[in-house]
Design a protein around this nucleic acid. Structure first.
Lengths: 247, 247
DNA sequence: ATGGAGCACTTGTCTGAACAAGTTGGCCTC
DNA sequence: GAGGCCAACTTGTTCAGACAAGTGCTCCAT
């Protein structure tokens, strides 16, 4: 925790969690917070902007800020790593590679991973569990330049993200996620221990490095009785977008 | 479009859309943008922060900003209003109230809408369509103080949000959305014209005013072949959070 | 009572400056 | 050629000040 504005954001987050400020109540004015923490108003504004983006507080010109929600999952790399997310919640993540295969890129692979025609990429089918229960089936395609590193990871490695970071220094920094629902196929059903055609929450995502280079793309299917997603939106800030199926 | 930083954000958004800056390429340095638009570096930083939050560009200390994605739905009130979203995409939204009923609040209603025990609230079942096709089934509970206004809206009003704004000045400002998947019930199937048990994308949401006062909560079920959701995440900014089903 | 004007308060916008910290590429040495 | 060091560049953090704009309250006149 280096930056002062992060410390202040954290202090405010904890104060809200402690119910020093209850849901519906008003936060102190910026000037008061600035005086309390011994910083300028700009630094306080950076801190409260973080909480606003998290959906914890609401802000409008002229009126004091209002507390909108009480708690926040508050982990950082939440979506980038299943294992890190599980650990942050005090659950144990497991993983197992069910199938692995090299294939020549399809048109879709090429578009999503920005690769040349004819490139060979690694397809991995991985089943992931939470406290022993299977909850997620990942079908991932890795870009050629990272595939050999992925290939040599042991089949039951709980955190591929952590492993790639340790082995190659790779940091997964950005992701685009498209969320919908599908019926479980026979294979899905067998591996996730649900009935065939039962509804699954599907997330298709592309993950890139800090430099913006695509690393992997994946079709993830969650048991909806085990995992959900949540998003806060506000009038000036909608991270979540609705899309039609075409285009 | 009042604020200078919004104008600059918009100019950059259009430049990216126009492919003046292609995906994977680098944005000019802040100082250069500041000089080009005749503003201080702080104002440029505000503009690029917007695009970063939208997932259009990636940013890291020391390196130039990189363009991550080409286009952005860029409408404002997207998630708050089905009709406004549809219009922004050049589609026509329809709506029809299928059932409407006053009930005494349940414990869940009270918790979500912050109401007193014994309060009467309005339950509405609304079917919504896009270009004539049914795509969404909304089961909404409105807080008592807005229910009478909702009750008097005609059954086939395409935009309830717009109507409430016109009639009562109500602005829906904040929302929390929890996303999962469910199997279509017999009723769902009939109204949405899908087979029973076919997968639906469910969004449960609570919407509040600018003051943080809950207005409505809703169980929305989308045909996943018609509507999807998309989210951008980045290392410092995860609007989307994964949740376990319990708690 | 009711409505409007005015005022204090609070957040939003913007500036210009300075320093910290991370990245990148070139140069130099071995 | 390989490796390491350095310098230029770029983004991140913070400050102090000023003004704009929206909110909510009081008070006054009707």
């Amino acid at each position: 925790m280096a930056a002062r504005h992060e410390e202040i954001a954290d202090a405010l987050r904890r104060a809200i969690d402690r119910e020093d400020y209850t849901v519906g109540s008003l936060l102190p004015p910026e000037t008061e917070l600035a005086a309390r923490y011994g910083v300028s108003r700009g630094t306080v504004r950076q801190a409260v902007a973080t909480l606003t983006a998290e959906g914890l507080i609401g802000s409008r010109q002229g009126a004091r800020r209002v507390v909108l929600a009480g708690r926040r999952s508050q982990s950082f790399a939440e979506l980038r790593s299943f294992a890190q997310w599980a650990r942050a919640m005090g659950r144990e993540a497991t993983g197992r590679v069910m199938a692995q295969e090299w294939r020549t890129v399809t048109a879709e692979d090429r578009a999503r991973l920005q690769l040349d025609p004819g490139t060979r990429v690694l397809h991995v089918l991985r089943l992931r569990g939470l406290d022993g229960q299977p909850v997620l089936l990942e079908r991932t395609v890795y870009a050629d330049w990272i595939s050999t590193a992925v290939e040599h990871i042991e089949a039951d490695c709980p955190s591929v993200t952590q492993r790639l970071l340790d082995d190659t220094g790779l940091v997964l920094a950005y992701g685009e996620h498209v969320i919908d629902a599908v019926a479980a196929s026979a294979r899905d059903a067998e591996l996730l221990a649900v009935r065939r055609t039962s509804p699954l929450l599907r997330v298709r995502r592309v993950t890139t490095t800090r430099e913006g280079r695509p690393v992997e793309w994946s079709d993830d299917r969650y048991r909806p009785d085990a995992v959900r997603f949540s998003v806060h939106t506000s009038i000036g800030n909608n991270a979540l977008a609705r899309m039609t199926a075409d285009q």
